[in-house]
Simulated assay, not measured.
Amino acid sequence: MDEGTVEIFLPNSDAVTQQHGFFHGGAIATLADDAAAFAAYTMMEDGRQPLTIEFKINFLAPAEGPQLRAIGTVLRAGRSVAHSRADVFAQATGGEVLVATALATIKATQAVINEQ
């Protein structure tokens, strides 16, 4: 994919579904947040990492099927803040269904170095 765009997947399992068998809203939101943040990360300077500072999601349809696919896209990127969008799709018979869309503001923070 191009700089400023990412695609990530979440397979269906009992760990990410709720009582009706649909993907849980928290799992969908996490996937959308990750897609938006990692899209912004593709445009950050070396030594920077993404940190979500604002996030809004709209759930559009129940999410069911073998997996979810999220596409994160940067709408506008500055040196320290990027605005990204994420669309989450569920695989369904006959194609995909848009189940959620999100907007996020992502800050480029100093990279965290894990010394062990």
Rank of each mutant, 00 (worst) to 15 (best):
E3F: 06
E3Y: 10
E3T: 12
G4V: 02
V6L: 14
V6I: 15
V6D: 02
I8M: 09
F9I: 06
L10F: 13
P11A: 05
S13T: 07
D14L: 09
A15G: 11
A15C: 11
A15L: 10
A15H: 14
A15F: 11
A15I: 06
Q19L: 15
Q19C: 13
G21S: 08
G21L: 07
H24T: 07
G26P: 14
I28P: 14
A29Q: 01
A29G: 11
T30S: 14
D33T: 13
D34N: 12
D34Y: 04
A35P: 12
A35W: 05
A37E: 04
A37P: 13
A39Y: 08
A40P: 14
Y41E: 06
Y41W: 10
Y41I: 03
T42I: 09
M43N: 12
M43E: 07
M44K: 12
E45Q: 14
D46R: 10
D46C: 07
P50L: 08
L51K: 06
L51R: 04
I53H: 13
I53Y: 12
I53E: 11
F55H: 04
N58I: 02
N58E: 07
L60S: 10
P62M: 03
A63L: 00
L68E: 00
A70D: 03
G72S: 04
V74T: 07
R76L: 06
A77T: 05
G78C: 08
G78H: 10
R79C: 06
R79V: 03
A82T: 02
S84D: 01
R85K: 09
R85M: 03
A86M: 03
A86I: 03
D87W: 01
V88Q: 01
V88L: 02
V88I: 05
V88R: 00
F89S: 02
F89V: 04
A90W: 01
A90G: 09
A92C: 10
A92L: 05
A92H: 12
T93V: 08
T93F: 13
G95K: 05
E96R: 07
V97W: 02
V97K: 03
L98R: 07
T101R: 01
A102S: 09
L103D: 00
A104P: 03
T105H: 04
K107G: 03
A108S: 13
T109C: 14
T109G: 11
I113R: 14
I113E: 15
N114C: 13
E115D: 15
Q116P: 14
Q116G: 15
